[in-house]
Simulated scan of single mutants.
Amino acid sequence: MRSGTSIGANISEAVRGQSSKDFIHKLQISRKETSETLYWLTLLQKTNYLKPDTAIILIQSCEELLKILTSIIKTLELKIKN
Rank of each mutant, 00 (worst) to 15 (best):
W40T: 05
L44R: 03
R31D: 08
L41T: 13
E13L: 09
I11N: 09
L43G: 01
Q45F: 06
V15Q: 07
F23H: 13
L44S: 13
Y39M: 11
Q18F: 05
K21S: 12
S30I: 15
T34G: 06
K32R: 11
I24K: 02
L38W: 03
S6F: 01
D22G: 12
L38E: 13
S12Q: 02
K32S: 14
E13V: 14
G8Q: 00
E36R: 10
T34M: 05
E33C: 01
E33K: 05
S35K: 13
S30Q: 09
G17V: 11
I7F: 04
T37C: 12
L38N: 14
S19V: 03
N10S: 06
E13Y: 03
T5C: 08
E33A: 02
T42S: 06
L38Q: 10
T5K: 10
S20I: 14
T34K: 04
L27W: 07
S19C: 12
L44T: 13
T37A: 11
I11A: 15
Q45W: 04
A14S: 10
H25F: 13
Q28E: 15
S35W: 02
S19A: 11
Q28T: 11
G8C: 11
K21H: 12
K21C: 04
K46I: 15
L43I: 09
A9L: 00
G8E: 02
H25A: 02
R16H: 10
L41P: 04
K32G: 09
W40M: 05
E13I: 14
S19R: 03
W40F: 08
S20G: 14
S35I: 07
T5W: 01
K21G: 11
S35Q: 10
L44F: 14
K32L: 12
N10F: 06
K32F: 14
Q18K: 05
T47D: 01
T5L: 06
V15N: 09
L27Y: 04
T5M: 06
L44V: 06
F23Y: 14
A14H: 11
R31K: 12
T5F: 00
F23W: 15
S30H: 06
S3W: 13
L44W: 06
Q28D: 12
I11S: 14
L27Q: 07
L44C: 11
F23K: 08
N10T: 12
G8W: 02
T34V: 06
Q18M: 01
T34E: 07
T47F: 02
A14Q: 09
K46H: 10
Q28K: 14
Q18C: 05
I24G: 00
I11D: 13
Y39T: 05
R31H: 07
A9K: 00
F23C: 07
H25M: 09
Q18Y: 07
L44Q: 09
G4I: 15
H25R: 15
R2M: 03
T5N: 09
F23N: 04
S19L: 10
F23D: 03
V15P: 00
Q28P: 03
K26N: 08
G17P: 00
G17S: 09
